[in-house]
Write a protein that binds this DNA or RNA. Structure first.
Length: 488
RNA sequence: GCCUCGGUAGGGUAGUGGACAUCCUAGAAGCCUCCGGAGCUUUUGACCCGGGUUCGAAUCCCGGCCGAGGCGCCA
């Protein structure tokens, strides 16, 4: 009854007997199915970390959704996980924002979201700089003041950055994306970590002391020097990033960063340098860019589709859809359902594509709730819930017979393997593919095999199967950060 | 110019060495006697090009072409 094996041509076929499938099903009806054994490994996962100079756009949230889905998968796989957002509070872009608030008409407009306000000032300041390049010197001055710890300027930077982060928090909450800790880049200057890392780098044989301090990584295939310190003595982003990763390497067993494709080179240089310093190098999940049909996005040029606009539009469309289907429900209930549906649509649409594929943002796809979409998955779940509710009490039965039953049970049994693959391969889209396969298999089963209308042990075993499917799909959706609503 | 990542039916997409290449969309034909049709069935249609490795390549290697991203004091 277990697993039988035979050879056919060049293939070895394993036949999973009913005993094997039954065991899996018994686990699948229990709460928390798919969770792997607890591990002692401490993992730190950094994602999103967008510069606080304007609202999150549809490119940034690809990072957020890939990162948050991975985070959920790691927790499901039993790891001790901390999720971090690295706040860039001392870059040139923030200095430009600070300059803009000081020199331009930057009053807050009533009803304007904080991050949108920052973007408006940032875009205006860039326009001024284009007109009068000498402003750059004033911006440089601000950066030097921050690096030297001038409290007035530091406060000014942090005030604007905090406001922008408040805006991000609203967006990320709407997307069901969570961080455990916000790590501020400037802390690595203040606590001396950056200085200490630089002094270690100075001692490396690859160090080059000209006006700048840089590493010559040509032996590792990097043509250009990796600059650590500017000629005016201030540190560059790379130096603080090294300090940050030093700290992560010291406190965690596994360090994972989710970064955009534009970071490929600097991330590789960072990995290389960490190794030279005898430290654990981060594992990096790169995702390729999301562009618009008219070209690439740019915060600076004000050319982007903001995540907030996307959320608003998808929620509107979802509300109309729910209202058309369930007019009898209270408006409050319809609003709640449509928010869950919108969340599912957005997250699934983004996570289903493998990270290494560059994409073009498409409103039509984002607003589609059929078939290969998050709402389709939610619908399959809601249907299963409805069947179980109507069924009432039944006796669990694990002896399956028909092809449809067995196909569904096998799909259910695969779930823990999928969780494991997601965290070992760092491929969150596998979970999306699995969720769709599971819902598809269920829909086919549902079409051919009557559940409530069958009788005796046939009814029992099919209800058991529906129950296992509902629980498995629920766990899959939760790992995808999608609400497993019972009705919609 | 150099480096990195992609190139799978009309459009989008899964698939890192093996059995008729996944799914969505689009086109065609069906299914409301149905437990919620955001559904189901059947069907049309694809591995960029050229070499190589292998018993066997969408998958690995080399060279093209196309797309995205990057290339010392930006982040």
């Amino acid at each position: 009854m277990g697993i039988t094996v035979d050879a056919k041509g060049p293939y070895i076929n394993f036949h999973f007997g009913t005993a094997y499938v039954s065991e899996s099903l018994k686990a699948a009806v229990r709460p928390g199915y798919g969770s792997l054994p607890k591990k002692e490994t401490r993992v730190v996962l950094e994602h999103t970390s967008a510069n606080p100079n304007g609202p999150l756009h549809v490119g940034h949230i690809r990072n957020s959704i890939i990162g948050d889905t991975l985070a959920r998968a790691f927790r499901k796989a039993g790891y001790r996980l901390e999720v971090q957002y690295y706040v860039n509070d001392m870059g040139r872009q923030i200095a430009i924002v600070a300059w803009g608030f000081e020199h331009l008409d930057s009053a807050h407009v009533a009803g304007e979201k904080e991050d949108a306000h920052i973007a408006r000032v940032y875009i205006a300041a860039n326009r001024e700089i284009d007109k009068d390049p000498s402003i750059t010197q004033q911006v440089d001055r601000l950066m030097q003041l921050v690096e030297s710890g001038d409290s007035e300027t530091v406060k000014k930077f942090q005030r604007e950055v905090s406001r922008c982060l408040d805006g991000f928090a609203v967006t990320l909450k709407a997307l069901n994306v969570q961080h455990d800790r916000f790590v501020w880049e400037s802390d690595f200057i203040r606590n001396g970590d950056t200085r200490r890392v630089i002094s270690r780098i100075e001692k490396l044989p690859q160090a080059r002391h000209d006006e700048t301090l840089a590493l010559d990584l040509e032996e590792f295939g990097f043509k250009n020097p990796y600059v650590i310190r500017r000629s005016d003595g201030t540190s560059v982003y790379a130096a603080r990033d090294l300090a940050f990763h030093f700290w992560k390497a010291a406190n965690f067993d596994r360090v994972i960063d989710v970064l955009g494709a534009d970071h490929k080179l600097i991330a590789a240089q960072l990995q290389c340098t960490m190794k030279l310093l005898g430290q654990k190098a981060p594992e990096i999940v790169h995702f390729e860019f999301v562009s618009l049909p008219e070209g690439s996005m740019s915060t600076r040029a004000g050319k982007f589709v903001s995540a907030d606009d996307l959320i608003t539009e998808v929620r509107k469309r979802a509300f109309d859809e729910v209202t058309a289907r369930r007019p009898e429900l209270d408006e409050g209930v319809r609003t709640a359902i449509s928010q869950s549906v919108a969340l599912a649509a957005i997250r699934y649409d983004i996570v289903k594509v493998s990270p290494e594929k560059s994409t073009v943002f498409d409103w039509k796809e984002a607003l589609n709730f059929e078939r290969q979409s998050g709402p389709y998955l939610q619908y399959a779940h809601a249907r299963a819930c409805s069947i179980l509710e109507k069924a009432g009490q039944f006796t669990e039965c694990y002896d399956l017979e028909t092809d449809q039953e067995i196909a569904l049970a096998k799909k259910i049994a695969k779930f823990p393997v999928v969780i494991d693959r997601v965290v070992t391969e760092l491929h969150p889209h596998l979970l999306a593919t699995y969720a769709h396969e599971l819902a598809d298999t269920f829909n086919t089963f549902y079409h051919f095999e009557p559940v409530l209308k069958s009788e005796g042990t046939v009814r029992d075993r099919r209800l058991t199967l529906v129950s296992a499917m509902q629980n498995t799909l629920k766990e899959t959706l939760l790992t995808l950060g999608i609400d497993a609503i019972r009705t919609m």
